[in-house]
Design a protein around this nucleic acid. Sequence first.
DNA 1: ATCATATGTTCAATATATTGGACATTGACG
DNA 2: CGTCAATGTCCAATATATTGAACATATGAT
Lengths: 260, 260
Amino acid sequence: MDAIADDAGGKRARGLDRAFEILDFLRQKRQALKPNEIAAQIGAPRSSVYELVNLLLRNGILEFTGGDGRVYLGRKLYFLGAAYENHFDFTRECEAALERLAGETRETAQFCMLDGNKYTVVHMREGARPFRISTDIGQSVPIPWTASGRLLVAHMTDEEILAFIPPQDFQLPGGEWLDPQAFLTEVRQAGHEGFFTFNSIVDSFTHCFAVPVMDEGHAAATLCLVTPRDDGLANRDRYLACLKDAAASLGQAPTRPKRS
Amino acid sequence: MDAIADDAGGKRARGLDRAFEILDFLRQKRQALKPNEIAAQIGAPRSSVYELVNLLLRNGILEFTGGDGRVYLGRKLYFLGAAYENHFDFTRECEAALERLAGETRETAQFCMLDGNKYTVVHMREGARPFRISTDIGQSVPIPWTASGRLLVAHMTDEEILAFIPPQDFQLPGGEWLDPQAFLTEVRQAGHEGFFTFNSIVDSFTHCFAVPVMDEGHAAATLCLVTPRDDGLANRDRYLACLKDAAASLGQAPTRPKRS
DNA sequence: ATCATATGTTCAATATATTGGACATTGACG
DNA sequence: CGTCAATGTCCAATATATTGAACATATGAT
């Protein structure tokens, strides 16, 4: 039912969940915070947060940094993340693909995945354009805001999708609401065609292209281009072809465990 | 008192500690495992492991992979690790330094840190030598086995060092025991001279060089060269100079938080 | 068929983790 | 000075997480 963090009822929270809530919060903030601040901002009892922070510090999951008792994500997380990346050794090929894409199109190219029930940019190669048009790496973005979002949930049923995406994520940055049914229609279309493009609904001057990187029958990730609207429309076919090539080269090497 | 994982007494284990024990174990094994196997191999109650594995799966910390209900480290760990790496943005400079070192020396160059109370290779650039002489990235190695180990604990007092390093880690791979007092002497020497070199005690044909990457007054990491013995001895002064240059270039940019 | 092993699920007992609130300290401010 | 806010520590009460053991199922060997 619940995806990650629910401050719901009035019960006690499980330490493990609370701990990962803290880690996720620090990741979102992208800066060291005092335990007290963490407690206040995630709405958790201070004593609990102090207890958990100490536990996590002892395990190297958190580290003191920034002085004044501030803590941030620790080295052990780096090692664990590196092991994940190593197991599914996609980073090298991924960056090669982005490099190639950026070379062919001169546009900003991104490699995106789901992080829980949000969309996030995992790798990015900035284009030659003089302006900066993309979200930062690692930031969580509501799925309906993005072209990739249509593809990343395309393997689910309508009901699963609506249960998966938090209802408030259908509210666009401007404040308007996106009709869930319209979104589902686009999801089906994207899944069927094997790509999705649209004028960004996050800003008013970019056009977005997304194609799926297939793995085990569904979109495990997407490759995207973010372009100025006129460029995107003018080069649409060529850009799509580039993206599909790149995605195919990634997809055909699906999650292979590395041999030691 | 306890560093990370103690299956000591007869009491109940805390979920959080057990959870990270599972994660660390999977990282060590570097392969997906069934919950049952995990339980057996880390000596934890099966019901506890099943419970924790399910919790971790729900949070994306673990993922099903490899079929048959096997689990491995999950995508969320990748994101958390990436955030850590991003905060202390050393990876790019680090790999540049290794690249340069490898170019200048044609030897295998490594960037090493402590992971808990073990030594581990974080980044590596293989040399031009036709044989493979180094440990794998991310593997945990007893501190006394390595040249870098002398530097990485040099900021501690003798008592702290002996409390920090598990006693059995003074047993070398061949079975002989390294005298802790002799080790401490080498640590002091390394700390004083600002480098350490020796004929590897892990194998019989390499010579190791290590210099510290200083941060906040102590060795936060080391840069190392692993060379065939005769090459190492022949080029000792030049190699050391290269290493010190590289370490200085890394050290003078200490743990700077990235601005958003 | 019988036994052994590996795997996963369920459940009740109790050891303990989580929590609210009291307390201590510091610094800012009027 | 007194007051307020921010921060960290401490502690007892109780809700619950951890655990051993029983149970269920599958597979393979003898």
